[in-house]
Design a protein around this nucleic acid. Structure first.
Length: 821
DNA sequence: GGTATCCAAA
């Protein structure tokens, strides 16, 4: 909005509408309406001043109404038109349209007003169809419709998004020559807008012979709510050119549009106008302003406005919570929630959804459960949106089991419910459940949308099977979702994770307007495949284009450098992220930097880097350090890193195991024994190694040393046989990390590692020439890595192993990682 | 008896 187009403070004087109050308090009404009515219809004063009339005016419930009616009858007032109309109106108001009809029908000489009241009752309580039928009957009974018969019928159509009936009423309205009435036509415009027919809405607006402020507000709201924010903003300028001054409702309507385009400049000019026009202190305006600032990324300004508000509604609180959630500060959102409860504000469904969202982002299960209690307390169990939020909160807090319980007991599931559940399974590695949920959804005739596809693709990316990847890709195309940037980005990521990095790039090149996440996915794909140079080339290309890299881009770039040993490049880009793009490195960035230096053997440098960090180093940082010390057999820094990790995460046994391995690799056996004793004393266990391999739509999982698989005997026999073959080819078992036992036992233990079992199973059950895909939950062990190289050589098979860090493509005795991992 | 602010899944 051009600020010049907003006249200065004169607006207030020219403005003859009083600003809207946030909420009006209903004071028990006096018999005034009866009085005014009596003047028009000549009702004698003994009727409208009768105590029964006063009681009906004060009546607030069905129960009271039933107590008053005998009084009406006893006093012989039942046949008075005034009482008949009032009774019809009250019965409709309290939801009993049948009783209203029972009063209405027997009356002989029905006034027009009685028909209008009855029609309103049908519109409010019955179907639109019944109301329309009654409208027909009115014509039959020779009752002339008035304009408000149409306005509230149109409102009902809009609220129910019933376009069919809306059009019918539009037609009737024209027949009754209300086509030029500003009230009626505003109602028509609103109806089309609410039925998401914004083009028709605008056409009607455009044809109106006369437009008042409300008509302008209606069409602006229409564009704003249908996602045409720019158009809404344009119309605010145009209305001023045509002599209409935006009022507080215009501003409340258009502020979300400003938020949508995300332009602080536009938002600030509206803010300026609001101040000049004297609207800025209104509670709904300041709420909408704060919301706009949050959505434009300036949550601090939003908070300033929020704190400066004389009064707040629950919407103000909800909006502030949302601001923090959307700006990645969930703990502050929770703080607002707690403050709100302290101040005795009653939370609404939106409050609870925001709180759940914040808990989900924090991964805080305990707090999530605490918020869940409010759902029952506030009786929100039938609010589908709230239930969907619960599903995604539990999923993000790694409790897909609770999420699926809620989902399974949920009535009236929407697309969002299904999508949330599929995503929940996908995020928790429950691939087959995600796929089952997906096919169940389809079998119920629900069409997958872009959210569904992204969720399914994420699940399949986890599975990493090219055949599945191609299947979903085909489905995406057939569902016409192949132009959606989130879907195509997910496909790029999935192909990369399946090891089909060339296919990923082909798809990437075909995308016209790439989003920053698209670039990130491709760069990360190259990185995890050890194609550091390709990742850097693509990053250069990105920087030359219009899409700006973000913090995630840099994480992928540095990690790509780390996987390929490009230390200097990594150091350079780390510096550049803050210098050139003003991006503050996060803990993950520091962790990746330590990994980069440490993996390359620059252990001392990595430690110095940690000591010079501006923030307190976390688990990821020391974890990377310990991993590097394991690779380079560095006891001194390994111990330092491990001790920090024992403090930071005392429940994780894996760090003790890593430290023990470092001791073992330098033959410090007494130290190894010490660590083992500590672990026993603390009851710590190592996360068991687990490898997965898919065969004919079934995922087979193997734990180290397990003998529970039906083919177990065959697998171990095959591994023994394979052992001779690869030894003949030059393989030497690396028994460094297996302790305290005889050589042949050591070899046996090595042979029972989960990845070897999975590979053997794959070889036994697939035809020659096919590629075997294995996924492992931990990092591949050194001996398995070496053995797999030889296995790929002697069997002539390509084996792709994806561990928790990256991909290893084994082919002809060589691994794609170049043994740098 | 016509217009309005906060919200569920990537």
């Amino acid at each position: 909005m051009r600020s010049s187009s907003v006249p200065p403070i004169a607006i207030v004087k020219a403005h003859n509408r009083t600003p809207l109050k946030s909420s009006s308090i209903t004071i028990p009404s006096s018999p005034l309406p009866f009085h005014t009515l009596s003047e028009r219809t000549h009702i004698p004063s003994h009727v409208y001043k009768h105590p029964a009339a006063v009681l009906l005016e004060l009546c607030t419930s069905m129960k009271e109404l039933h107590q008053i009616i005998p009084l009406v009858i006893k006093n012989g007032l039942y046949n008075e038109h005034l009482f008949q109309t009032k009774l019809v109106s009250l019965f409709s108001k309290y939801g009993s349209i049948n009783e209203a009809a029972r009063v209405f029908e027997p009356i002989d000489d029905k006034l027009d007003a009685l028909y209008h009241t009855m029609l309103k009752g049908y519109a409010k309580n019955s179907s639109l169809e019944t109301a329309l039928a009654f409208l027909c009957r009115m014509r039959y009974d020779d009752v002339k419709p008035v304009v408000y018969n149409f306005t509230y019928l149109l409102k009902v159509c809009g609220d129910n998004a019933d376009l069919k009936r809306g059009k019918e009423i539009h037609g009737q309205l024209i027949t009754n020559s209300f086509g030029a009435n500003v009230f009626a036509m505003t109602g028509v415009v609103n109806m089309y807008a609410k039925c998401r027919q914004i083009d028709d809405a605008y056409k009607m607006f455009d044809r109106m012979p006369e437009r008042d402020l409300v008509s302008w507000n209606t069409i602006i709201a229409g564009f704003s709510q249908n996602g045409f924010a720019k158009k809404a903003l344009e119309l605010v300028l145009r209305m001023q050119d045509e002599g209409q001054r935006p009022d507080s409702i215009t501003l409340v309507t258009v502020l979300p549009a400003a938020a949508d385009v995300g332009s602080l400049m536009v938002g600030k000019s509206i803010h300026g106008y609001a101040i000049r026009a004297g609207f800025a202190k209104l509670v709904n305006i300041s709420t909408a302003l704060a919301d706009m600032y949050s959505k434009c990324g300036s949550v601090e300004t939003a908070r300033l406005i929020f704190d400066g508000m004389d009064q707040k509604t629950v919407v103000s609180w909800n909006s502030m919570m949302d601001g923090y959630v959307q700006n990645g500060e969930p703990e502050k959102a929770i703080a607002v929630f707690e403050k709100m409860l302290e101040e005795g504000i009653d939370p609404t469904s939106v409050t609870i959804m925001e709180a759940l969202h914040a808990c989900a982002d924090l991964g805080d299960l305990e707090r999530g459960k605490f918020v869940h209690k409010f759902v029952d307390q506030l009786n929100l169990g039938s609010d589908i949106s709230v239930m969907n939020s619960l599903i995604s909160m539990y999923s993000k807090c790694k409790r897909a089991d609770i999420a699926s319980d809620i989902f399974n007991n949920l009535n009236g599931r929407t697309h969002v419910s299904w999508n949330a559940m599929i995503l929940g399974y996908a995020q928790n590695g429950r691939v087959s459940e995600a796929l089952n949920c997906f096919s169940e959804m389809k079998s119920l005739g629900m069409k997958p949308d872009s959210f569904t596809m992204v969720s399914v693709i994420l699940a399949l990316a986890d599975l990493s099977i090219t055949r599945h990847a191609k299947w979903i890709h085909g489905l995406v195309i057939r569902s016409c979702l192949d132009k959606n940037i989130f879907v195509t980005t997910a496909l790029v990521d999935m192909y990369a994770k399946c090891g089909a990095i060339h296919m990923a790039r082909k798809l990437f090149d075909m995308i016209n307007d790439r989003h920053v996440i698209t670039w990130n996915a491709m760069i990360d794909g190259y990185g995890t495949h050890g194609l550091g140079r390709a990742a850097l080339d693509l990053f250069d290309k990105m920087k030359k284009g219009t899409v700006e890299p973000n913090d995630i881009t840099y994480l992928s770039v540095i990690s790509a450098c780390s996987h390929s040993g490009l230390v200097d490049e990594g150091l350079h880009h780390f510096k550049s992220m803050k210098q050139d793009y003003g991006l503050e490195p996060s803990m993950d960035h520091y962790g990746t930097m330590v990994d980069l230096l440490g993996r390359a053997g620059r252990i001392k440098e990595a430690w110095d880097f940690i000591e010079n960090m501006p923030i307190s180093p976390g688990i990821t940082v020391y974890g990377a350090m310990l991993g590097a010390c394991k690779i380079h057999k560095n006891v001194e820094f390994g111990e330092k890193a491990a001790n920090k990790l024992f403090e930071l995460n005392p429940d994780e046994g894996g760090y003790h195991v890593l430290l023990a391995n470092i001791y073992a690799s330098t033959s410090k056996w007494s130290k190894v024994a010490e660590v083992r004793k500590t672990m026993e004393k603390k009851g710590l266990k190592k996360t068991p190694g687990c490898s997965l391999v898919e065969l004919r739509n079934e995922v087979h999982s193997f734990y180290s040393g397990s003998t529970t698989h039906p083919q177990s005997k065959r697998i171990y026999a095959f591994l023994e046989e394979l052992g001779y073959e690869i030894k003949a080819a030059g393989y030497v078992p690396d028994t460094n990390s297996i302790l305290d036992v005889e050589d042949d036992v050591q070899e046996q233990l090595l042979n029972s590692h989960s990845e070897k079992l999975a590979i053997a199973f794959g070889l036994l059950n697939t035809s020659p020439g096919t590629t075997i895909h294995v996924r492992k939950n931990l990092r591949v062990c050194g001996d398995c890595h070496n053995a797999t190289k030889y296995i790929s050589l002697v069997t002539g098979r390509e084996i792709i192993v994806r561990d928790m860090q990256r991909f290893h493509h084994f082919k002809n005795g060589i691994c794609s990682c170049g043994d740098y991992w």
